[in-house]
């Protein structure tokens, strides 16, 4: 909770910097001068970009809290997107709900596969998901013949529906993200399964001695991670209008980074879903900031990498100070 105050402060600070220094442009329709950063279009755009990471980061947080890791999450995204697009094309469907169901289905399938292997094989999740990371992407590559597959128009219209907002604004991904984060947070904090995930991640031995059904608990978090990747894939493929086996390449690391910046402990047992969202938001803000402040884009990775390390170090420092204060007070 307190950790997120620090993260929130950093995000606000960065936002202020962007408001002040990102420059302005003249809106073509209204003729008014607006900030390059602080305008509805840019803000919704940032939330949209965040949503792809953050939805996956929810599942990743649960996985890491349980003491594991899911490296295959980006590949599940690609597989779900490609699988959905191919099935829609082959069946001649164009309903966005069918597309959503397909993406969720493929995501869950991949999650069940990961979860079952982690729960039963006794191999470290890093290795299991390192393997499936290539397998899933490889399957997507083979079935799509390495081509980009178009998504039916109505599906794109669904994801880009302006709803109650003005023309050109696309709040659907952000809304889905909000719902998924809410669901994830409730799952972790208010359900018995969430509590069990925390216990298994905190001390797997003690959890076993308390009679918890460990294989189900472990499998469960990978299934949720798969679900998140499926939903993110639906939003992504629909939003961009196509799916390819190269989608979300390397996203697993952005997603892990989001979770870690958000305060999840790689040792398991500690982490919050809202923190992961803030972590994802910070990373997207940094990427946007580089563009808006007209910094050399070639430095993007260097800046993001350094920012992650700094964020985590500051976070730990803050937590330690807070701990001292609580003990003394």
């Amino acid at each position: 909770m307190m950790q997120q105050v620090g993260l929130l402060a950093v995000i606000l600070l960065l936002s202020l910097v962007l408001v002040r220094f990102s420059g302005t442009h003249v809106d073509r329709e209204t003729g008014q001068t607006v900030s390059n950063f602080f305008n509805p279009g840019s803000l919704v755009q940032i939330l949209t970009e965040t949503s792809f990471f953050a939805i996956m980061a929810v599942g990743m947080t649960l996985v890491i809290v349980s003491g594991g890791i899911d490296l295959s999450i980006g590949s599940v995204y690609a597989l779900a997107g490609v699988g959905m697009a191919l099935t829609m094309r082959a069946a001649g469907w164009d309903s966005p709900w069918a597309a959503l169901a397909l993406c969720i289905g493929f995501g869950l399938l991949a999650g069940v596969l990961n979860g079952t292997m982690v729960a039963t094989l006794g191999v470290h999740p890093f290795i299991v998901t390192l393997g499936t990371m290539w397998v899933f992407r490889g399957v997507a590559f083979v079935v799509s013949k390495a081509e980009s597959v178009l998504v039916p128009g109505p599906v794109t219209d669904f994801a880009k529906n302006p709803l109650f907002l003005g023309k050109g604004l696309t709040p659907v991904p952000a809304i889905v993200m909000g719902l998924f984060i809410l669901g994830g947070a409730l799952y972790l904090n208010r359900t018995t399964m969430g509590r069990r995930v925390l216990a298994v991640g905190g001390n797997a031995d003690a959890a076993r001695y308390a009679g918890l059904p460990i294989p189900y608990i472990l499998a469960g978090v990978y299934v949720i991670a798969g679900l998140g990747a499926g939903i993110a894939a639906f939003l992504g493929a629909a939003y961009f209008g196509s799916a390819s086996s190269a989608d979300a390449n390397g996203y697993e690391l952005y997603v892990i980074a989001s979770a870690v910046v958000g305060g999840v402990s790689l040792n398991g047992g500690r982490g919050t879903v809202t923190g992961a969202f803030l972590g994802a938001l910070l990373i997207v803000l940094i990427r946007t900031g580089i563009r808006l402040l007209r910094l050399d884009q070639n430095y993007e990775w260097i800046i993001i990498g350094a920012a992650i390390i700094i964020a985590v170090v500051l976070d730990r420092l803050g937590a330690r100070l807070l701990e001292k204060r609580m003990v003394n007070g």
Partner: peptide, 28 residues
């Protein structure tokens, strides 16, 4: 090692073996 999750609170540790009794449809 076997009795407690040291990083969790007394409330969390104390209820871990009776969670089903304290919940409805998985909701704590």
């Amino acid at each position: 090692r076997h009795g407690l999750v040291l990083g969790m609170t007394i409330r969390h540790n104390g209820s871990i073996a009776v969670l089903p009794r304290l919940s409805t449809l998985g909701w704590l």
